Computed example of a mutant assay.
Amino acid sequence: MIKLALSDMDNTLIPFGAPHVSDRTIEAVHAVLDAGVFFGPATGREPLELKRFFQGDEACFRTGIFSNGKRVHANGVAVRTILLGHNELVRIDEALRGEKGVFLVCYPEQTDETNPAYGVRTTKPELAVFEGRTHFTGTVVDEVPNEDFIAATIACPGPPERMDRCRQIIAEAVPEVRIVSPIPEWFDVLPAGVSKASGLDVLLDALDLTPSEVVVFGDAENDLDIMRRVPHAVAVANANDEVKRVARHHVGSVGEDGVAEALLEIARATAVGETPAFLADEGLE
């Protein structure tokens, strides 16, 4: 029986760049909650950002894995917070200095609904491209500020080959972190050992659940670890090829509200003690 449904946000629950999830999605989340199943995002984004995505409906993210596992909330209670090391961020910035147009973005732990961030050693026009794309309010600075940061990203404009080079640079210069790409030209920075999967372990412990009671929906590289952790891993139809290979089940695309329809099926099946059809049938495209 499914007792927890977790979904990535961008390009899984909501089309990338859309201002908020669909009304159908909010309806589906509440149907799952009303059926006694926990629901939560498993996302690289922060809880305050999700107020916009869920149109202020905080019931939709009382439980979840945020900032790619650095924050975990269980039914409204914060059960994990991991900050990024200042020294590691400084070394990332130093390692990237030879790469024109590639820069670090740091997000303070003390934040607000504008999602403030620092673009390190970049220009306002370069920063503005990614501000609009990923929805943060940026300030250009010459060095990593000496304050607490909950998240960091790397802007890496250019072809996939440049992304590969950036991976190599960071792996060699700062082995204490790993970088994963949720969207093209963009990396999330994570402490080694921290991921959505490690956040799942914390969340399962807090809710007294097992991996077999969880369904996880995803589409991109930063979803792979958590999808490998559960037997009910589900790819949306627009997922990348690796996610599709890892997933045991498949649903419709983000543009078709594929996850919302799956959540409604979970709610229906839970009410009558059945296995959701998309899980029993090994996934429906």
Rank of each mutant, 00 (worst) to 15 (best):
S253Q: 05
M227V: 13
G193T: 05
D57P: 07
S7G: 12
H20Y: 13
G258R: 07
V90N: 01
D148E: 10
F278P: 00
V272K: 03
S198G: 01
R268H: 06
E94H: 11
H232S: 08
D142K: 13
L224V: 15
V37K: 08
A5F: 07
R268F: 03
G101D: 14
G138V: 05
V216Y: 04
A59M: 11
V177S: 03
R165W: 09
D241A: 15
A237C: 08
D112Y: 02
F187L: 10
A117D: 03
V90K: 12
T81V: 13
P211Y: 04
A280T: 00
D34W: 04
D241S: 14
V144A: 01
E147I: 15
P175Y: 00
T111V: 03
P182Q: 10
P157H: 07
Q168W: 02
E109L: 10
A173L: 08
C106W: 03
N87R: 08
D188Y: 03
E109N: 00
L263T: 02
A271H: 01
G98N: 09
E99I: 07
E113M: 04
K244G: 13
G252W: 01
G199D: 11
I150A: 01
F39R: 10
P191Y: 02
P231T: 06
A280L: 08
V21M: 09
M9V: 15
F54I: 02
S195A: 07
T270R: 15
M163L: 12
D219A: 14
L104T: 07
D148P: 06
V194M: 05
R165P: 00
E88K: 01
I154Y: 10
I170L: 11
F278C: 02
G69I: 14
V102R: 10
A233C: 09
I14K: 15
R228S: 06
T134L: 12
A220C: 11
R80D: 11
R248S: 12
E256H: 13
L209Q: 06
T210M: 11
D225V: 12
V216L: 12
V189H: 05
E99W: 08
D93W: 09
A5Q: 04
L127W: 02
V202E: 12
E27A: 10
V230E: 06
V236F: 08
A152P: 03
V216C: 05
R24H: 11
R121W: 09
P41G: 09
G119N: 06
G36D: 00
E261N: 10
A35W: 00
C106K: 02
A247E: 07
F149N: 00
D8K: 12
A235M: 10
L264F: 00
L6M: 13
E176S: 15
A260G: 09
E126P: 06
T210P: 02
R52F: 05
I179D: 01
I179F: 07
T122N: 07
Q55R: 15
P157A: 13
E213C: 05
S7P: 04
L48Y: 03
R268C: 02
H232F: 07
V144K: 06
I14P: 04
E46D: 10
S212R: 12
A155D: 07
G193V: 06
K70W: 02
D225W: 04
K51Q: 09
V141E: 10
G101C: 08
A28P: 00
P182M: 13
E27C: 01
A42H: 06
Q168F: 04
R229N: 04
F187V: 10
T81D: 15
G132V: 00
D208C: 10
V202C: 11
